[in-house]
Design a protein around this nucleic acid. Structure first.
Ligand code: SF4
Ligand code: SF4
Lengths: 137, 137
DNA sequence: ACATAATACTACTTAAAGGTAGAATTAATT
DNA sequence: AATTAATTCTACCTTTAAGTAGTATTATGT
């Protein structure tokens, strides 16, 4: 019942980047040190974020990363989607999901609300919302 | 954002067993076939359930498994605990959890409620509650 | 041109979850 | 006593997530 490490790292990285509004380039070394994320793993994640169009990278000396879109337009759910960590509508607590209405377990109806809250939380929280507290999470 | 396979299987197995109130022994072969769980994996799980005292096993011919406690006294959270799948009070969405009140991310407060609902759901749902619908989940 | 400092790429290693195989043990029936 | 049908044990295999290493590529500044 946890997000994958990659998702967690990615959210933290992007939230930290969003917090530094000044559209300056941020490089992997600094990000890794500041956020206590293994450098090599961080660059791997960053490359995926670049490929999926959330951030752009400038290579070479003085290079780094910056956002491609406005941080108010990037939702946490967009990040989760990249790492196959999204919460689907039909997702069942017990990994089945095809039980019909006539035969449903006691968890079925109880699971609906937390799942919806989670979806809502991920879909409606932008990086702008998450940042702005000046903290390195 | 899913329970482990072991937890999911365990819940389904025990719910099915609870559904067959008649305290008859149920054997691994039948359970595996009925619930479409790989036989060998199921026996591995059952052995853990036996060790943790939820069910007792009778070996030898005509053996099988039955509950040690009343099904109304076994909560889903008890099962999750066995497979290290419990949701902890301090559990953070981003895998950190030590941010203080002064510096918390936008997810922090939104995460409180779904987490609480999940804990509540797991802690307050007994096997008796889950069973009794006559369905093999 | 060259050194430097950054990302990108390819490939590998490690750790954990998920799953399987086979033999050992146990107990009831014959 | 032998057979049979069940669980248990030990060990292994497979897949996926997590993390690492080394090299290639790119761009800047001197
Ligand atoms: S009834 Fe239970 S097992 Fe079936 S889809 Fe709903 S939550 Fe999942
Ligand atoms: S503030 Fe955010 S990162 Fe920090 S503990 Fe709360 S949810 Fe986790």
């Amino acid at each position: 019942m946890q997000l994958s490490n990659s998702s967690q790292y990615a959210i933290r990285i992007l939230a930290y980047m969003a917090d530094k509004k000044d559209s300056k380039l941020l490089n992997a070394t600094e990000l890794a040190k500041t956020l206590y994320i293994p450098y090599k793993f961080l660059t791997k994640i960053m490359t995926e974020l670049v490929k999926s169009g959330l951030v752009i990278s400038i290579r070479g000396r003085d290079g780094g990363y910056k956002f491609e879109k406005k941080t108010s337009e990037i939702m946490v759910s967009d990040i989760l989607a990249i790492f196959n960590d999204s919460i689907k509508n039909e997702q069942c607590v017990l990994g089945i999901g095809f039980c019909n209405g006539l035969c449903k377990c006691a968890l079925h109806d109880q699971w609906v609300e937390p799942r919806h809250l989670l979806q809502k939380m991920f879909q409606e929280s932008s990086l702008e919302d998450i940042a702005g507290k000046g903290c390195k999470i």
